[in-house]
């Protein structure tokens, strides 16, 4: 039985390598690239025009979002509400589609399978603090766990989170959905336990409980509860 399994695994490895080599060959440029018309383009990078287009694309998106926000604010004003949100650099995202929420949940689920917990946390201003567990030094930040997006119990209260790869890499928000798990190396007894943060994803959460998700057409906002529910669907 073990021999059969070994043989199947060996077959699979050979298949994979063979297919990979075929695809690698097909991925390379050549004089006859399969295009029906026109000679192959020689340039290997798109050049500065791509950056110009990208800036224009961002500007348009922001204008569209600002217009949408203005319309929403006008509707709120019309309804007699006086609350006005504070806007950051980028305007508030549009509502996330169902597929976007499902995709975000699937992304989180992949990390849950690796032992991480998706937590709604508040991160203080001390995002970059030196941390030392007695053998390793690095940077981290302190956070307060507010809730877990899975059924398991969240670690309580204040957390010390290692963030060695990209201390500034967190979204610019004090409320976030982060993926955390207990760090392999812990501080000396008595100190607050350390947690590792998954490099991605990290979703900002607005004051009204909306989590900002990466959607195909830009950012999308969804209620935290909606993401939690999607995460529970397997």
């Amino acid at each position: 039985m073990d021999e059969r399994r070994d043989a199947t695994a060996a077959d699979a490895a050979v298949d994979s390598e063979h297919v990979r080599r075929l695809l690698s060959a097909a991925a390379e440029p050549d004089g006859d690239s399969g295009d029906r018309a026109g000679p192959p383009r020689q340039r290997t990078t798109p050049g500065p025009d791509l950056l110009v287009r990208a800036r224009r694309s961002l500007r348009r998106r922001r204008a569209a979002l600002a217009a949408g926000t203005a319309a929403a604010l006008a509707a709120v004003a019309f309804a007699g509400t006086t609350t006005v949100n504070t806007f950051r650099d980028e305007a508030a995202p549009t509502p996330a589609s169902a597929s976007c929420v499902e995709q975000a949940a699937a992304d989180l689920r992949g990390w849950v399978d690796k032992g991480y917990q998706p937590l709604h946390v508040t991160v203080g201003d001390d995002k970059r603090i030196p941390m030392d567990n007695g053998t390793t030094q690095g940077f981290g930040f302190r956070a307060t766990a507010k809730s877990s997006l899975t059924d398991t119990r969240p670690p309580g209260g204040r957390l010390s989170v290692w963030n060695p790869l990209h201390p500034e890499g967190l979204p610019d928000s004090t409320e976030l959905v982060l993926l955390l798990r207990q760090a392999r190396v812990q501080p000396e007894a008595g100190a607050r336990p350390y947690y590792d943060v998954a490099p991605r994803p990290a979703y900002p959460v607005s004051a009204d409980g909306k989590v900002t998700l990466p959607c195909q057409d830009g950012d999308g906002a969804a209620d935290l509860q909606r993401l939690r529910h999607a995460l529970g669907q397997r």
């Binding site: 798109p46 791509l50 950056l51 287009r53 990208a54 800036r55 694309s57 961002l58 998106r61 650099d89 980028e90 790869l165 990209h166 890499g169 967190l170 979204p171 610019d172 490099p199 991605r200 990290a202 900002p204 900002t212 990466p214 195909q216 830009g218 950012d219």
Partner: peptide, 17 residues
């Protein structure tokens, strides 16, 4: 690729790395 890169640029702050 270029269409995807435009979208990547728009989401750059969120992507981070």
């Amino acid at each position: 690729v270029q269409e995807a890169l435009l979208r990547t640029y728009r989401s750059w702050r969120r992507i981070g790395r």
